[in-house]
Design a binder for these strands. Structure first.
Lengths: 216, 216, 216, 216
DNA sequence: GATGAATGAGAATTCATTCAT
DNA sequence: TATGAATGAATTCTCATTCAT
């Protein structure tokens, strides 16, 4: 299997450069991650079994363990992979901000854009009819939250943000971001700009500053 | 039963039909619920087993099944019980509101007060080191969210709230409430008034209207 | 319960004669037996639980144990009760027989008549879609079989029956009786005379002596 | 798989696809069936547990479920396996019959021969000290009974058998066969010819035509 | 005697993980 | 490395039986 480049005898296989192997390994790892994202989103973390994941793959059960030590590890890999991708973007956005407006708008816009383009992963985190809200505490995610908080503190120190309870502010941004992201994904079409505008307006001017509704 | 010849002493018993039995049944149910709250909060929903719950009790394993059919059922009972308690209070608060300030402030104040006095249950919902974010979709909770949304819509219709995206607004209130509640519970002392003031100010005036920080 | 003779105060109860109690006891025992017959016939011996039996009764679970020590005991009671009723009749029939015709015809006729009038109990023994063929080895039943065999031997000794393998003959009579009884009960109307005629003819003259069919 | 470079030595392997695996799988299935036959015969269907079966095996408990979903399934597999083996033989015997004698004698002879050589399976169906008479209603067995009945009807239509109640006749043959088979197995030596002779004589000429006894 | 909730031994079943091939 | 059957500890759940009232 996966011998699509084989031309003659398998003797050639023996000399295949590391590169080929690497790619197969990567492909398997990706296949497992993709299947896991799917299954977690469908069944929820608690209810999915390793068997469910490999069944959604064309690999054998034992192969799973060449890549991940456990269900927990593959789950963290999903979360981290996602966080690894979005964290630097969020960070860059906040650092570049020259005003409170840019700080808030840039953060939300980046987050909602990311969610919209990576629905698969976010679905894992969604509240949904049969699932659980999943762990938000992989190192990468916690680091992301801490990073947000320390950026808020720094911004307050620099006079960019008004001084306030940074902890609550961070929590509020996270809460609004995740809950609205869920709502956003349930709408058709998915409109990250609208979500970002709403959240930004709320944080900049409160309820009275919210944009007029575009959604029924 | 078998008390038909009792003449005097049974007068007291008359108030406890079936006597101690009835009381034991209720007490056992409560014991299981309390243990479950505890264990869920400690291990997370996914990781706790029915055995863990009964082990945290002085009851026998079989007894669990006299009261609940499964882990899922006891979990929903916890959620529902809690939602059943707080929902009417939130509703009343919103209905009594005569202004946007009252609507927002009353809702948050009631919610944070409730969380502060019922930490056990809320802990089940907390993000915590080894746990999952739990199902927020028991009928009672979903109904609570829907109720909030429809009250928001009504308030907008009546001109009490400025017209905006009610769905996002509901989601934002929920997100801020839950995330800040978590933070609130991690502080010493737990201060629901401070949390409510923060959230209220955010929703009424945005980030620039937030109270000065009282927490490091 | 069962207070139909109560006229006034319950004080009277205290003085009730043994008789009254006796009747209640008997009634309870019968209620349990009737329920058990039902449930065994519906679920099969293996699948029925003591709970199933008492649930089919208006008694409490504990009460079962005032009457029977176990599921096994109540089952044997059913079998025995039935065997106790039919055994003497079968025996009398065989003893009274003055010819091979009377021996065979009398036995089958008595058996099929009994089954037709006591379908409830026999149903317990029926092969049926979800059930098991039940124990045929309560003391009473075994004794009935042994009795049949020794009566056969005696009849052979007396020249009433031709000498043959008594063991196989007994087995054949039992096999034909039980299997045909099942068939008989599935027909409408239930016709013990026809079944008896068939079995008798078979034993007296073989397949060529069978009566012309009356059943499609 | 992974054998594509084998040039010489693998010729032998070619007959054992997946090599030892396949053999092990079959062997395990057989081991479970053999153990189950044993245990069912010893304890009866109702009393045996899946644990009893695997304990009679050198396999692990979980392995049982790789092969059968439940006790019921393994039981039916035993019954069916047996019926699958004997049904065609019985059928062939009946079809080949050119006279009523051949029809009856061939059927009984084939049945008793089969039981004598497959005591293990038949024991499962035996009435025995602690057991229940087991389900005789697996699809294969029911089909076997129906097949017998329709062959009887056909034989009557063709004038091979005298016209009589085919349903009762089928039931009688089954009853005599099973009950006498039990008796036969309890004797030493097991003598299928004697059992067949007895049953055949009974069906052809009735009680007066039975062979003289050879058994005490 | 009657009641029915509590008990806990043990049955059925699942599933992460190992390991021979 | 991939495979997938075997493993067996852990889990869920059942149910006969006890016992306080």
């Amino acid at each position: 299997m996966t011998t699509e480049t084989d031309s003659g005898a398998s003797a050639v296989m023996a000399h295949l450069p590391k590169g080929k192997r690497e790619r197969t390994k990567l492909a398997n790892r990706e296949a497992i991650l993709a299947a896991a994202r799917d299954v977690f989103a469908r069944l929820g973390y608690g209810a999915t079994t390793v068997r469910d994941i490999i069944r959604a793959t064309d690999l054998a059960s034992g192969t799973f363990y060449n890549y991940f030590k456990s269900k927990e590890e593959v789950f963290e890999a999903i979360q981290d992979e996602s966080a690894v991708r979005v964290r630097p973007r969020l960070r860059a956005e906040r650092i570049r901000a020259k005003s409170v407006e840019e700080f808030i708008a840039g953060s939300f816009r980046t987050f909602f854009d990311y969610v919209a383009t990576d629905r698969g992963t976010f679905a894992v985190m969604r509240r949904n009819a049969d699932t659980v809200r999943v762990r938000m505490d992989t190192p990468e995610i916690i680091a992301g939250f801490d990073e947000l908080k320390s950026d808020i503190v720094r911004a307050m120190d620099e006079g960019l943000l008004p001084r306030a309870d940074a902890d609550f502010l961070m929590a509020s941004m996270v809460g609004v971001a995740f809950e609205c992201a869920e709502r956003m994904l349930k709408r058709e079409p998915v409109d990250p700009a609208a979500a970002a505008d709403f959240a930004t307006a709320l944080f900049l001017g409160g309820i009275r500053a919210l944009p007029k509704p575009t959604h029924s």
